[in-house]
Design a protein around this nucleic acid. Sequence first.
RNA 1: GGUCCCGUAGCUCAGCUGGAUAGAGCAACGCCCUUCUAAGGCGUGGGUCAUGGGUUCGAAUCCCGUCGGGAUCACCA
Length: 597
Amino acid sequence: MNLEATIQSVVAQSVKTLYNIDVENNQIQIQKTKKEFEGDLTVVVFPFAKAARKSPEATGQEIGEFIVQNHAVVSAFNVIKGFLNLSIHPSYWLETLDTIHGNAGFGKTLPTGKADTMMIEYSSPNTNKPLHLGHIRNNLLGFSIAEIQKANGWKVVKTNIVNDRGIHICKSMLAWKLFGNGETPESSGMKGDHLVGKYYVVFDKAYKAEIKELMEKGMTEEEAKKNAPLILEAQNMLLAWENNDMEVRQLWKTMNGWVYAGFDETYKQMGVDFDKIYYESETYLTGKSEVERGVAEKVFYQRDDKSVWADLTGDGLDEKLLLRTDGTSVYMTQDIGTAKLRYNDFDIKKMVYVVGNEQNYHFQVLSILLDKLGYAWGKDLVHFSYGMVELPEGKMKSREGTVVDADDLMAEMIDSARETSQELGKLDNCTPEEIESVARMVGLGALKYFILKVDPRKNMTFNPKESIDFNGNTGPFIQYTHARIKSVLRKAVEQGINFGIGIDKSLEISEKESYLIQLLTEFPNIIKQAGEEFSPALIANYEYELVKEFNQFYHDFSILKEDNEALRQFRLVLSASVAKVIKTGMGLLGIEVPERM
RNA sequence: GGUCCCGUAGCUCAGCUGGAUAGAGCAACGCCCUUCUAAGGCGUGGGUCAUGGGUUCGAAUCCCGUCGGGAUCACCA
């Protein structure tokens, strides 16, 4: 039983004995004592004061006395207003630290053989343009959540659905065919995904010019958009693709190949990966046949123009298109197919889609459609809906060239980390490889922490003009603290100090030290909560608080230079434990921590 | 228009399953390296928690209204 639960049960017992009131343990509010007051944990006594018919102060006093008498772990108490502040005996903290120190996987619950499987879909790029900052948030969240769920005992399958077919890629293909002059990644020296993205923009420009021309000839904008030769040709291309036209398929394969090579580089740099990748080109047919089955079973219906729809008005929603007039499939169609294949391929207990909140409606519909098709798990899909990354001017728009490119941003972060390292001269004795490795860790650490520390459900703002900080509440600050601790531990070893032999439980320790231990004890619970709420931000904020506290400790206390051997021993163990929790926690965010920086 | 989300310091964000005087970082200003890494520590200033009401012993937190911002309701993905 953890400390909080112990206190809860003692309080319940005391309230029963003193006032004959029955309270459920979990109804008792325990919180950390605020820093300005003495004590470690605080019981909120207002709820009992009323029933006890006494003032909150008197109630707190009586409960406090009862607890101190009946529980050795509580060494003292004080009451302020209706708050009963309890001081925990130092030996309890020392005992706890010993346990933490001896547990290499502290905080995590590793999956057992019979653990349930959670499939997490993230990334899910289109193959017509390179990844941008929005994708970075998606990828980092997906990867981190996978790590967090693993640490909560789930067996996790990370998956990616690549939107490799559809009208968007036909646009790039068409533009390349018409205006590309055979340009390749090799001939241009461009990364493949960027090259294909370039032709997507080329298409858009030419298409817009055509629309303008048609409108000048008297068409309405809507008519012009539908009748511009380029869009008609792109639609034809999609049709040809679905009909397995050799030439179109060949071009498609070539250009997608360029894109994949580019994506692989980006993913590698970002440090994310997948256990199983699905391609829409391989799942959309299953989707189509599911839709056709739906029509046969009359859950969906076909209109006179041959298009297929689901009527969701009974569910409070609209009608949803599932197959176009020309028989080609849409996004929803392929998502139905992908879902079915996944459940065939894996024994999925929980399916999670890491997809932006702009698609809330889509997933609401998907869930209902799968349910209508007779899949019991349809209703259980989890849409992990995260907020958009916005620029100070608003949403990023690829067509207006305001997107922040993923490759560029990562490279910039690494560059500025390298520059800072050089300026500070911290790595002057290191090999070029070591310097590069640290620059990468720190640059990416800054970026990742910047993204992950904010509540995933909220939109966030990124200002490209202000570079991401390396000081304050940042990834590098946390990494730096780790490096500092490691430096001390290395010196301890050099001096032949062995701190693996346990600590003296009768030591007097400072408030700062016991508070650090208290923070460490919260770590497993933070991981649990982060898993339940799908929130890496909880881990990030916890890490920051821990590190901030540690730095104050580091500033105010000597570790190696402490004369009292037992105290020195204890502080080394404490520092090592903090370093361990930093590393584990940052690992859950997909952030590496350096040994020196 | 329907549905949903958001509004906390100049900026970026915590806090939101109700609890003490609302916290950090950045930016500004000042102090601390002959002491284990100053990517650090300490301090100062900065708030009608959008707004009006309600519930409660107690509201940034829960409920209702108003204002402001965003998303979505495509034969786009």
